[in-house]
């Protein structure tokens, strides 16, 4: 056990020495990895910030139902029952068309104009508050309600929120796709870096094999190197995203203040960052494993 730990410590120390021995090349590699990590992570950060913003908005979904202007009291009564029985609706408030006209006269100051119209142009309407979770199936609710002959129009006030939600979903998909692409690229980059290292250390590998090094002894430093490099590169990527968000934060909070809001962009949560770090380390490790498996066999016997 101690012996095993010693071999691993040896490999880890060798890795750090190797990284420090070629500071410029190492820095360059870390930047390459960092950028590959920063792009999907940055996209993800933007999307999840947008989602946070959407979360600050009222979640209760509202809708309005407008009747035909010629709807009579019987129609109104029937629609009232219909609405109160619908499983997606929490409550429905009737707005009398006469009342609506009076309200409009008072708030708009267009009393003269409206008086000149003679007939009341406004319909009877209902203001609905939807149940939680009902917002997922608004289209169904809409068709259900429109089936009643007295109902002219159903307006979903949350339509824009839905649109925002689908934009967020789209952004999230895009972030995942970019992450998959860059993950694959990262693996190939690492495989190639390790291949070059194996070639430059060919002699050492050959001699080590000849004097009794096992395959895992030979493999270990390369795998450590890949994993450590991946981790450091991912940290660079996170730092890049942090810097980018920081730069955006000035204009963003200015924009938010125009709407009377205070809003700041944040890095993704620690679990997400942890997941990115370990994913990058694993991908690097995997790339290195492929490379080592392919190239070590060809050296020595």
């Amino acid at each position: 056990m101690i012996h095993w730990l010693r071999l691993h410590r040896l490999a880890l120390l060798a890795t750090l020495r190797l990284i420090l021995a070629h500071p410029l090349a190492s820095l360059f590699n870390l930047l390459v990895i960092g950028i590959a990590v920063a792009l999907p992570l940055g996209l993800y950060a933007l999307v999840s910030n947008l989602q946070g913003l959407a979360g600050q908005l009222p979640t209760e979904t509202q809708a309005s139902v407008f009747l035909h202007t010629n709807a009579g009291p019987a129609d109104i009564g029937r629609v009232q029952t219909l609405l109160s029985q619908d499983p997606a609706i929490a409550s429905a408030r009737h707005i009398n068309k006469h009342q609506a006209l009076k309200d409009l006269e008072q708030t708009s100051g267009m009393a003269d104009l409206l008086a000149g119209l003679g007939d009341n142009p406004l319909p009877d309407s209902f203001e609905l508050t939807l149940k939680d979770g009902a917002s997922t199936d608004l289209a169904a609710l809409q068709t259900r309600l429109k089936a009643d002959a007295a109902i002219e129009y159903v307006q979903l006030d949350s339509e824009w929120a839905q649109r925002l939600a689908s934009i967020i979903r789209l952004g999230r998909e895009a972030a995942l796709t970019v992450a998959a692409l860059f993950g694959a690229a990262l693996m190939l980059i690492t495989a190639n870096l390790i291949r070059m290292q194996i070639l430059t250390r060919r002699e050492e590998i050959e001699v080590s094999k000849l004097i009794g090094a096992t395959d895992s002894f030979i493999r270990r430093p390369f795998l450590y190197f890949a994993a450590v490099q991946g981790l450091l590169g991912a940290l660079v990527g996170i730092a890049l995203v942090g810097l980018g968000l920081n730069r955006l934060n000035g204009p963003v909070s200015q924009l938010a203040s125009l709407y009377g809001q205070s809003f700041q962009l944040h890095l993704p949560s620690p679990p997400v960052l942890g997941l990115s770090l370990s994913t990058v380390a694993l991908l690097s490790l995997f790339g290195a494993t492929l490379s080592v498996g392919k190239h070590l066999r060809s050296i020595g016997n």
Binding site: E204, K209, L210, T214
Partner: peptide
Amino acid sequence: SRGALPFLRRHIGLIFQDHKILFD
């Protein structure tokens, strides 16, 4: 077997004709 070879070699000291010294 490939896996057993390193352990056999640890019982052997090799002095190579071409030295195989590592200059790094």
